[in-house]
């Protein structure tokens, strides 16, 4: 077909619009299923990072300052908590982690939920070699900073930014967990009070 400015602009515009409409339709169609699949992933991550429990952490989840807490209990005693945390300091914006804490704040396991870091560099944080160094460490003694910044975390080589972001996400989860769940174990009422206030300030 002969190209003129008019038909080039017209065909590109119309075809792009039609494609966008089609894509929007499929997006609407799959939106709910995708959300469900992601929720499923979160639920299985919660189970992966927690010690054995007999309550339902999903039903007891609490949102504090944008982080989601899934408390685990055994025989009514708190045994730990899975925290869905995030960082905005990553190399490509944001990523989400699920961190499992024991009752005293010791990290049990970390699972990477969602990340867009560079494959082969920052994306190596999903590998056991990096993320398993946190297992069994308590951030009270194990300073959550990469060695370059005076901490104890072995950064991924050539991906210091991603490693710092990872620490940032875990640190945030640890701070909020200690503040809202661990220090107030003396009284149930005080605990639910503080979370209520926190929940109120959120959003």
């Amino acid at each position: 077909m002969e190209s003129t400015l008019k038909n080039m602009v017209l065909s590109l515009t119309l075809i792009s619009m039609a494609m966008v409409a089609g894509l929007g339709f499929v997006y609407e169609l799959t939106k709910d299923t995708i959300a469900k699949a992601e929720k499923q992933k979160e639920v299985s991550a919660v189970k992966d990072v927690l010690p054995s429990f007999d309550n339902n952490p999903i039903a007891e989840m609490k949102e504090i300052d944008g982080l989601t807490f899934y408390p685990a209990k055994k025989n009514g005693q708190s045994v730990g908590c899975a925290v869905k945390t995030f960082t905005n300091k990553a190399f490509s914006g944001r990523f989400d982690l699920m961190v499992g804490f024991l009752a005293d704040g010791t990290i049990k396991t970390i699972v990477v939920l969602e990340q867009k870091e560079t494959p082969g560099l920052g994306a190596k944080m999903t590998e056991p070699k990096f993320k398993n160094q946190f297992n069994g460490k308590n951030p009270a003694q194990f300073s959550l900073l990469v060695k370059k910044d005076g901490g104890k975390v072995d950064a991924i080589s050539a991906a210091t930014i991603s490693s710092r972001a990872f620490c940032d996400g875990v640190q945030k989860a640890y701070d909020l967990y200690m503040k809202n769940f661990v220090h107030s174990t003396s009284g149930e009422a005080a605990k639910s009070d503080s979370t209520a206030v926190k929940g109120g300030t959120h959003e």
């Binding site: 077909m1 003129t4 080039m8 075809i15 494609m19």
Partner: peptide, 29 residues
Amino acid sequence: NYIPDKVRIAVFITIIATCVSVVELLMKA
């Protein structure tokens, strides 16, 4: 028959990118 020769690659890429996004959404779901 509605794609002018000079912009055909751009149009093809638009169409292909849409198809790929559709596959991506379906696979995610």
